[in-house]
Simulated assay, not measured.
Amino acid sequence: MPVVVPVKFPFASRDLWFDPQGLDIIEADYAICSTERGQEIGLVTADPFEVEESALRAPLKPVLRIATDADLDRADELARRGEEAMHGFRNLVKQNDLDMKPVGVEYLFGGEKAVFYFAAEDRVDFRQLVKDLSARFHTRVDMRQIGVRDETRLVGGIAHCGQELCCARFGGQFEPVSIRMAKEQDLPLNSAKISGVCGRLMCCLRYEFEAYKDFKGRAPKKKAVIDTPLGKARIQEYDTPREQLILRLE
């Protein structure tokens, strides 16, 4: 079976699998990988493991080498260049009077190009902006439009619960979240309370939805009267995490 190693890149939404090429690579190493965009540096998130051939959607790209101290220094320098480029990115967007929000700038490790990430509600004609960016930074330019959820993940922050944002902490693909999930968990249908920093429904509404749905499918309905050792009682509320009922004795 093929052996793969998962690698996380700063602007990627999920880990990508690569061929470790027999290298003595382990979790928490940094690796220089060959990707469709060129050479990139990423964090190895697990030791190499075997997978079924059917699990591979495309031929594996190789890990070129384990990152050296010189590679890590270069990665830090490219990250600083990306942060510095944001100022010019914002200015040029303003000069071109474009309805977009600059989110980040990523210089690829191999020096092939710089990727400029932006958020926008609609499609944007950025042809002139690309010319201006290329002239300003003297590199090939790639523009990537992202959604508000991706923007929030890249920027990061703290959620209502006081923890790091789920999208930044757990990564992975965004799954659909519906208002039904909030209703099933008896949450107040107040958009301010069930919306995340991105303005969309909170990702965490998915996490316990199935548990609430399963328990409510097995438990008696609310307001039903049931027999207990202390006499008849009416079901007032559910305590789903503990799978308990809150009763009021009649």
Rank of each mutant, 00 (worst) to 15 (best):
L247G: 01
M100H: 07
M143N: 05
T35P: 04
D125F: 08
F170P: 05
Q95P: 09
F9R: 03
C204A: 07
D99S: 14
V7M: 00
V105N: 04
K61Q: 05
E36M: 12
K213W: 02
R136V: 12
P10K: 05
E210R: 00
G196V: 07
I235L: 10
E164F: 07
K131C: 14
Q173G: 07
R74Q: 11
E210A: 11
V63D: 06
D227A: 12
G162D: 06
Q39F: 09
T68Y: 10
A58L: 14
M1S: 11
L247I: 02
R74S: 13
K222N: 01
E208S: 06
R81H: 14
F11H: 10
L23R: 05
D132Q: 15
P10I: 09
Q244Y: 01
E243R: 09
F11P: 00
D186T: 13
F170V: 07
V115W: 07
P220V: 10
P2G: 06
F18A: 06
D142M: 08
L72T: 08
M143Y: 12
L133S: 05
N91D: 15
G147Y: 02
R136A: 15
I226S: 09
A28E: 13
R218Y: 04
K113G: 03
L189W: 11
T240R: 03
S54W: 07
T139Q: 12
Q236Y: 08
G42T: 00
Q21A: 14
P188S: 11
R242F: 14
G196E: 11
A85I: 08
F18Q: 02
F11V: 10
V4F: 03
I66E: 02
V155T: 15
D122S: 02
L23W: 05
F137I: 11
E208V: 01
K101S: 00
Y238V: 04
E210V: 01
V4H: 02
